[in-house]
Every structure is written in C-alpha cells, then in structure tokens.
Design a protein around this nucleic acid. Structure first.
Lengths: 252, 252
DNA sequence: CGGATTCTTGAGAGCTGTCAATCGTTGTGG
DNA sequence: CCACAACGATTGACAGCTCTCAAGAATCCG
C-alpha cells in the first residue's frame, strides 16, 4: 500500500512532534538502492507481497488494470513514499517507474518486526495510511464530481506540492498517465490544458512542465469555485455536475 | 477512517486465523449502545476525532461535502464496521445514519491504548485498513472508468455481499445516496435500473429492494465484461470508455 | 384521503469520448 | 548536420452518454 500522496508534506501528527527523528528511512537505510528504468515495473498487482519499498529518488505510478485493458492510476509517488505496505498477502496494485527511479527494499517480515518493536514507527505508519486514505478519497471526489477544468486544476496543484504554488510545475508523466489518473482521455487532458492556457491561468507549457500564471485562479478552480457560486449547500436544488459552465475564456 | 467496506466478508489474514476471538468487539463490548435516527449525523468531517465508533446495527453512509453542495459518498458501513479511526486529529468525512442505527463508542485515547497493548488488534486494524484502501480504490476505478450499467451492476454486487448473490438485494439507501456513491445523477440511476430490468437481469424492484434474475449477467457486467471483449489488454489500441455499447436489451 | 416526498420517464443540451489528421519532438542513420 | 522515422501531443469533426430541466407516477405519512 502506498503511503503519503504526492504533494502532501510529511506532516507529523501533533503527538509525534517531539519524537526522535526515527522515521522510516532508518528501517531502509542499511539496504542498497536498486534502480529501475522508466516504465519498468517494480512489482505487480496480485504478486505476493514479500517486500516493502521506500522510494529513494524519482517518481513512480501506482495503477490498476481492468480486464479489458482500461487502466487507472491510483497515485503518483516520489522520494520518501512507501510502496507495498499491503498488510495482506498480495499487492493491491502495480507500481511502475515513471522516471528513472531508485528504491530500497526490506522483507515484509522484517518491516513487520520493526513495526512491532517501535511504537513511533507504528504511529507514523498509521498517520501515513490516514493521509493515503484521505488522498484516495480526494481522488474519488475529483473523478466522480468534477469537470475537466477542475480536475486538471486540482492535478496541477497536487503536482505543485503543498507549499506556495511554484511558478513552474514539473510533470514527469505523459498525458496518458495524467488521463488515467484523472479519469479522462488524453485528448481531453490536452484540450483542457490548452483552454486553461488561453484563459491566461497557465502558460503554454513545455511538454513536461507548466507555468502557473494565476495561482489564485487555479486554486479557485481546483476547489470547485469555478467562478460562480451556485446555491446554498446541499438539500433542495441539488446539483450533480460541476458548474453552470461559463466559458473559461470569458473570465480573463 | 472507516474500515471494511460493505460487502466484504470479515476475512482474517491467514496468520491471524488461530488467534483467540479477540476482535474489536471486545474493545467496545463494555460500552453502552447509542441510537441514531435515520439521517442523523454521528460526526462531521473536520470534527475533532475524539472517539472511535463501532457500528452495532443498521447502516450508515460516510460522505464528503464539496464547497458548492455537491456530495460524495465514500462508503456504506454496517454492523461490525469501525468509524472514525482517523489517526489524525480530525475526522476526514461525515457519517450519517442511513437507517436507524446503533453504535458503541470509545475514546480515541482508549482505543490507541488497546492498540498499543494488543498486537493482534493491530494486525486486525491493519488488515481492515488495507481492505478499506482497496475498497476506496475500487470505487475510484468504478467511478472513473465505468459506464452507468457497470456501476449499477457493481453496486448491486457490493450490496449483495460477497457470498453467492442472493435472490433479493436490500437497498436501504435512497436513489440520491446511490447516485452520490456512484458519481451519477438520480435520473441516470433510475434509468439504468430500468434498463437492467428490461434486459431481464434484475426484476422491476420494490423501491428499496431488487431481485437478481441473472446473477452471471450481473457479474459479467460488474467486471467490465459487458458482453463483448474489445481487444488485447493494454498497449496499442487503448480505450478509455467502457464498452462499444451494444444495447442491453439486444441481449435478452 | 391529500400533501409531500421520492422515483420514474421524457426531451433536449452539453461535455467528454471516439476517430482521424496534423504538428512537434525525439532519436536514429546516412 | 540534416533527413526521416517514430512517437507523443494537439487539434478538429462528430457522436454518444449522461446531465439538466420538467412533468408525471408511485409511495409514504399524516
């Protein structure tokens, strides 16, 4: 099971603040790093979960494959994130290198031992699981109720990280990866990026990076405040689709 | 954090099989039950997570509200499921009674103590968290890549439970709840049920229950095998949308 | 029995997916 | 160093599924 979604800072729960810097790195630090080339699989969904991995560098995608070839990316993970904490016999998703990636691994039983031995490690793990859970639900929300504009905006924010949105956001993944994460097609991803660009919110990007011109506008979009408020929360006139869809361009 | 999705049997991981029947119930058994009427909230997203709850009877919905009133149901939980194991300071979703519900609660710190004291409780919790995670990703997959037919079929299977699909599936929740769980509108939910019914897969239901006439057909639909296989898994001709959409009726 | 609520059904529109062609980049070989 | 193939990304035209809006049926409940 992956831990800590991309873009979330490694927040420690309040009660863990004063602990010694005893984090997962220590469990893995003795292990050699292994390198994977882009698009190489690190493990597959359904494999016996014999190891737990820590991403040391680069970025990976976690995905599930449907019977007919449809693909869903359930997360992008980067340095510091854990892979394969399935706590079941088998991995629940496939993990593939997105860039060149280095990881360290420890046997599952060893990881469990450390957990049993170190209470604060448990706390950290629980905390990460919770973040993870929250991120998974965020993705569900994103994909089930938001427009293409909102999805792309939210995605850019996610990839920008949690701090102040930097001027330039790096996108190590292909359009297909983005599409499979957001539940869209590459064409719609492309069109949406173009639309946001012509609205002046982002700038016509290099292929693998995007410049954010108006962070507030992006944030507003990502939060579903697509320019117009609709009505009072919940109950009577209940809407399902995102926004009365004023054209983006009209707001520049 | 909710645990164990509806419809999943309470599988114990293999290594826990021989443990004494030392499950979460014991932690809660001393606590009095509290009752909630339908539509009453048990706790809200963002509330300080002071308690952990065990559902004793009835069914609840866990949901997230978007700023504009859009609602996403992230799970339906029933007797035996845990509520509010957030492991963070605050609950990450709202929980409301769907039917009349009884729950037991223990203070968060007490729950943590028990966890610290009882390794097998930890194992169980981890196991449940993993199931939960898996269920959350299933929902993402469902909502991001599947047609209305497939979503409803999968939903019915989920509500039917994991055993042999019973003849009659009970649906304690409203169409709106179903819609908000599946990322659709009530109209589409309704139309889809009608369509499945006229295809002879289910029978024109009572409002809150559905009879499954052809479990295999339902299962095939739910698994994305919507009657036609498309092409070889993954790679070249990569499709995003569910199916070449032969009319359902044509297969009766 | 009557009002209110929920669900169903209908007509139409819109957003996103599909198919397809073009553009631009990357990488290879002459 | 340039030509060209291969691939990814963009753009266009069109279709389709689901949403919106609206009205009517069914059910619930007082």
């Amino acid at each position: 099971m992956k831990l800590r979604a991309v873009g979330q800072q490694p927040t420690r729960p309040a009660h863990a603040l004063k602990l010694p810097a005893n984090d997962f790195a220590s469990v893995f630090s003795q292990q050699p790093t292994e390198a994977f080339a882009a698009d190489q699989a690190i493990f597959w969904e359904g494999d016996e979960a014999k190891h737990v991995f820590l991403v040391a560098g680069g970025m990976v995608r976690a995905l599930r494959l449907l019977a007919d070839g449809r693909r869903v990316i359930v997360g992008f993970l980067r340095a510091g994130d854990l892979l394969g904490v399935s706590l079941k016999e088998r991995y629940i998703y496939t993990v593939e290198a997105l860039t060149t990636v280095t990881v360290r691994r420890v046997p599952r039983c060893r990881f469990d031992d450390e957990l049993a031995r170190q209470p604060r490690l448990r706390e950290q793990l629980f905390s990460r699981l919770c973040d993870e859970m929250s991120a998974a639900q965020d993705q569900t929300v994103l994909v089930s109720r938001r427009s293409a504009d909102e999805r792309i905006a939210a995605f850019l924010q996610l990839m920008a990280g949690s701090g102040a949105v930097p001027r330039v956001v790096d996108l190590p993944m292909s359009r297909l990866d983005i599409a499979d994460y957001l539940g869209m097609t590459i064409e719609t991803v492309s069109r949406t990026i173009t639309r946001l660009a012509s609205a002046g919110i982002i700038s016509p990007p290099g292929r693998r990076s995007i410049e954010v011109l108006r962070p507030e506008a992006l944030r507003a979009l990502a939060r579903g405040e697509g320019f117009v408020r609709r009505r009072s929360p919940a109950t009577p006139g209940y809407r399902h689709s995102p926004a009365p869809a004023r054209r983006l361009a009209s707001q520049v």
